[in-house]
């Protein structure tokens, strides 16, 4: 008997039954195939301007910084100003998704490259799929347009988030994932990153330190 059958057999013995019958399996499959939200706290049910306001407060509370701009056209200049104000090099690695969206010609002093990040990259720029108001959490997903290393290797992570993409709770973000990010076989992207503030640790005498292994700075550019 395989380990798999042995384990499943013991599980069933402990539950005092055999394999589930067809009806019960169908009922549970229905639960899996059309997931229903459980209790969502009030602060996860906000929308519109209130959700954006909550998102801003929560993400600042998680030690991220944030700047609001009106249109995509303003983003490159805003990022150039941010890099200068933080004394960071005017050089960044961006995802293809961002490259397709932004026109950097207006700020020729910023050197950009598209693709996965390498260890020398000091600034990474990516696009969020959604922002969750409830806890100020950004949702990013991997794909040919959006390599994951951009989110983790550089010391500084800048994320563009559209106001329209701010949702109340995590469940709404899942809905967006299912609507827009599944592949032809219905699979999720390889990875989905929920990011709330910059990397940190409290492992030395419970003293909070930002920038443990991931980015030391997280800067959100809220557009729209």
């Amino acid at each position: 008997m395989s380990a798999r059958e042995a384990i499943l057999g013991r599980v069933r013995a402990s539950l005092g039954r055999g394999r589930l019958d067809v009806d019960k399996s169908a009922e549970l499959d229905a639960r899996l195939n059309a997931p229903i939200a459980n209790l969502v706290p009030a602060r996860g049910q906000v929308s519109g301007a209130a959700a954006v306001e909550d998102f801003i407060q929560m993400t600042l509370g998680a030690a991220a910084t944030l700047e609001e701009v009106a249109t995509d056209l303003e983003i490159p200049a805003a990022i150039a100003r941010y890099l200068a104000s933080e004394n960071l090099p005017a050089r960044l690695v961006q995802t293809q998704e961002i490259a397709d969206r932004l026109d950097w010609d207006a700020v020729p002093q910023v050197e950009t490259r598209s693709g996965p990040a390498v260890s020398e990259d000091e600034v990474g720029l990516a696009m969020a799929l959604a922002g969750v108001a409830e806890t100020g959490t950004l949702i990013l997903r991997s794909g040919v347009q959006a390599p994951t290393t951009v989110n983790f290797l550089p010391d500084t992570h800048i994320v563009v988030l559209r106001r329209d993409d701010v949702v109340g709770g995590y469940e709404e973000a899942w809905a967006r994932l299912r609507e827009t990010c599944l592949d032809a076989d219905g699979r999720l992207p390889r990875t989905v990153n929920m990011i709330t503030g910059p990397s940190r640790t409290g492992d030395i005498e419970q003293t909070l330190q930002l920038g443990a292994h991931g980015p030391r700075r997280l800067h959100v550019v809220l557009v729209g």
């Binding site: 929560m58 509370g61 998680a62 693709g115 996965p116 806890t135 100020g136 959490t137 991997s142 794909g143 040919v144 390599p147 994951t148 290393t149 592949d183 699979r187 999720l188 992207p189 390889r190 990875t191 989905v192 990153n193 929920m194 990011i195 709330t196 503030g197 910059p198 990397s199 940190r200 409290g202 991931g214």
Partner: peptide
């Protein structure tokens, strides 16, 4: 656990890198 509203990184991993992915 720590009293944070949410941990910094909650990471969902669904399999190896896809054919077209650039990393992973």
């Amino acid at each position: 656990a720590t009293g944070q509203e949410f941990s910094v990184y909650t990471t969902l991993s669904s399999g190896p890198k896809r054919k077209e992915d650039l990393d992973g």
